[in-house]
Design a binder for these strands. Structure first.
Lengths: 133, 133
DNA sequence: CCTTCATGTTTACAAACGTAATCGACCCAC
DNA sequence: GTGGGTCGATTACGTTTGTAAACATGAAGG
């Protein structure tokens, strides 16, 4: 198979914070969304103009994080990367950066810093139990 | 619109990736370090020039993340924020951004994505047990 | 047709970042 | 005391990010 030319597709282009908010809107949206849709979703929390949302969408297209499909004279946007993958990547980044990649260290830290509520603990215990069967 | 005049010292200035590497060097170093020290520590992994390290140190001073103490004609740098605090802050950021603040979700995700080794699981279990007593 | 609105594209611009060269002050060896 | 080296400070410069206005174009209404 010929080597894929521009190499991209393998390239985990970094998604910025603002861009991430747009991704969340897209992931949240059932099916492809228009720029207006995204604006409506995201405009509540973040005070962005429609223009800003469009810029972010363009940048995400460039970064190959989302795809466009023409629909009449506008575009429908849909995520190219899955939320789980993104979340996994970011989590791993943090783990590597701050905990030497050791997940247990993270959990330990959360526990020590009291970031874990009683409920969290119970949930995690249940989770572990399930993983163990 | 008058920019909200922040009461300094309360201001959690964001530390960039490169700056973080410098912080790690400082945290690692026993006692105050010179720019050269930092350069020596960090120069291995990252291919930075001494000038770059100095720039980063300056920026960290501005951000009030580190303090300087004159020592003859040079400075000794030492962290003003503790690693645990930084780590806690960043962890929380991730948690809020990706998991709606729910730590259990993070752990669940790590588990599902198989980011947790057998050893991790055992460690976490032990941790929980300890927290429970 | 012509005006208006909706929509993506282009351009803008300041702040933050990554990376570093240069500058001015100071100290040491000759 | 003078030429080098050392040090922090200043300046630089391209890229990314946040935020958005201006522009081009096509659709739609009158």
């Amino acid at each position: 198979m010929p080597r894929k030319s521009v190499s991209q597709s393998e390239n985990p282009e970094r998604i910025s914070d603002a861009e991430h908010a747009v991704m969340e809107a897209l992931w949240d949206h059932a099916g492809p969304a228009t720029a207006q849709d995204v604006f409506d979703s995201v405009g509540e929390s973040r005070e962005w103009s429609l223009a800003t949302v469009k810029t972010l969408l363009s940048r995400l297209v460039q970064k190959q994080a989302i795809a466009t499909r023409p629909d009449g004279r506008r575009f429908l946007y849909s995520p190219l990367i899955e939320r789980a993958d993104y979340v996994g990547g970011e989590s791993r980044r943090l783990l590597d950066k701050l905990f030497g990649g050791r997940a247990a260290s993270l959990v330990a830290h959360l526990a020590e810093s009291e970031a874990l509520s009683e409920k969290d603990l119970t949930e995690i215990e249940a989770l572990l139990k399930e993983l163990r069967q």
